[in-house]
Design a protein around this nucleic acid. Sequence first.
RNA 1: GGCUCCGUGGCUUAAUGGAUAAAGCAUCUGACUACGAAUCAGAAGAUUGGAGGUUCGAGUCCUCCCGGAGUCACCA
Length: 614
Amino acid sequence: MNIISVIQEGVINAVKAVYGADIDSKQVSMNVTRKEFEGDYTVVVFPFSKIARKKPEAIAEDLGKHIVEHVAEISDFNVIKGFLNLSIGSEFWSEFLNAATVDPDFGIHPSNGKKVMVEFSSPNTNKPLHLGHIRNILLGWSCSKILQAAGYEVIKTQIVNNRGIAICKSMLSWKKFANGATPENSGIKGDRMVGDYYVMFTKKYEEEYLSWQQTEKAIEVYNEKKKEGQEKEAFFKGYKNDYFNEYSELGKEAKEMLLKWENNDPDTLELWKTMNSWVLEGFDKTYAKLGVDFDKLYFESDTYLLGKEIIEKGLEKGILTKEDKRVFIDLETKGLGRKTVIKSDGTSTYTSQDLGTAQLRWNDYGTEKMVYVVGDEQISHFQGVFEILKKLGEPYADGLYHLAYGMVDLPTGRMKTREGTVVDADDLIAEVIEESRQNAKERGELHEMSKEEQEEIIRNIGLAALKFFIIKVHPKKRMTFNPKESVDLQGQTGPYVQNAYVRIQSILRKAAGKADLEKSKLYKDYESLEKDLLNQIYQYPALVKSAAEDYDPSSIANYCYNIAKTFHKFYHDHSILKAESEEAKAFRLKLAKMVGRVLKAAMSLLGIEMPERM
RNA sequence: GGCUCCGUGGCUUAAUGGAUAAAGCAUCUGACUACGAAUCAGAAGAUUGGAGGUUCGAGUCCUCCCGGAGUCACCA
């Protein structure tokens, strides 16, 4: 039985016995005892002062005495103000450590029979992945692992946004300017190549727009549509989209291409397929570098027409309203305004696609939960989608969750494609690995290994730095990504946690076969750091559960750091291999091993691997 | 303007309504003849944006204000 429940029950019984009052476990306020005080768990007794009509100190004394007498696990107590600090006996900890040691699934919850789909990454196929995607991918991957550890069957998915005008822009640009260049004959990674042509389109379009602004037609438009006193420059800045649709040659060609695509023109489709495959190959390489994969891909080209069926259903039920061809839902009461599902030209929207895709996924997998890892700029969009599905009474509607994470800023401000400040994912990964390599070289710990082993470790450490740096921030928060700090290998970082693990492995290698771990049971007089470690290990399974409930990988990252920190201090203050006694040595080996196991398991939930040496 | 989110030492972050607000970076000072110094210890650094309120108790909950961001499309 969980020690927290044991204590809560003890308190409930004590209150009943001493004051004759009935309380429930919700009224028992408990925390882990703060470091500066003696004890393991603290019960706050202020809430009982009305029942007992005594001073908090006296109440704590009453309850403490009763609990020590009646609860076997509690060995001692002390009272400071209204706080009752309880100490857990070494028997309990000893049993816990032994049980955890032999439990191969420690921290992994048994299957709950439920399925959850996690969607993340979901890039457009017209440019390479960037820093923003990295946050998205790491959060999505980590949530998947956490949900899995919490007992769910997880299906990792993404929707590949592979159609639409943006895709046609890069296709058109390639056709016009590439002279048949391919990733193979140019040696450029596929996604980057396509992205380069997308950028080139934008550049050529800007040039075209600029020279158009000098024409008589442009002056005419300006005079006709400008607002009072609006300068030319300001007007044309705002007119860009209209220009694309009304007058642009490139715009016209791109739109024609989109039309051809929609009408299944063979040449267009072939070009589209070819360029898409280049991008997807490129993405796969980046995913592989990050160590992530997916169970199922959905392509927008297959889903963008979905939703008709569900919209029909909505119309029948009177949830959606039809006005000419346009279909919308009035969510004014929810503060979401009117959400259009079908445009007045009869074409679908992003919203209808998402409705249809949700339906499709439910049909494919029957997942009770669907988690969308998408930036917080789309909060209201998802509120709309979810609301519609709820009103339709879809069976999966209550399990929909938008994990809305904050945008990633640079120290110089927001990333902007136009200003060329977007941090490319591949470049960033290469950079952190290079930093790790420099560091490894200086330390020279790895020189006895093969080149391959060295590279593997170096890569591991660099990625750990990057991943930890991003995941430690609460998803909801907008974060500043400082490239300098992200490659830090010291302090509150991934490599710091890895180092704790490596130290443990080093000790275990040295002690292999030389210690009788059975003797650990004779060790009773725990050091306070030993208790801290035991307590932290003890928290782990519950932490996994709450991280899954909150979709919060940052809580796991913080946990990893804290337990690593405690271990580093313990390692510094107490010798393991040269412990005071054989019992102490056995106990500490067992403890260290368990710390290592938990660290490795917890970090793997963040997608971070642990090297054996570094 | 309406709605949503965020405001914590110089910087980046942490804190189920509980004790003296906790770490890292940067700065300064110590500890390698050591189970691995990617470590540890210490110093300095904070009226938790501001004002009220609820509570025995508020960084946390409520109200108002200030600052920042997002969104308010028949775009995705």
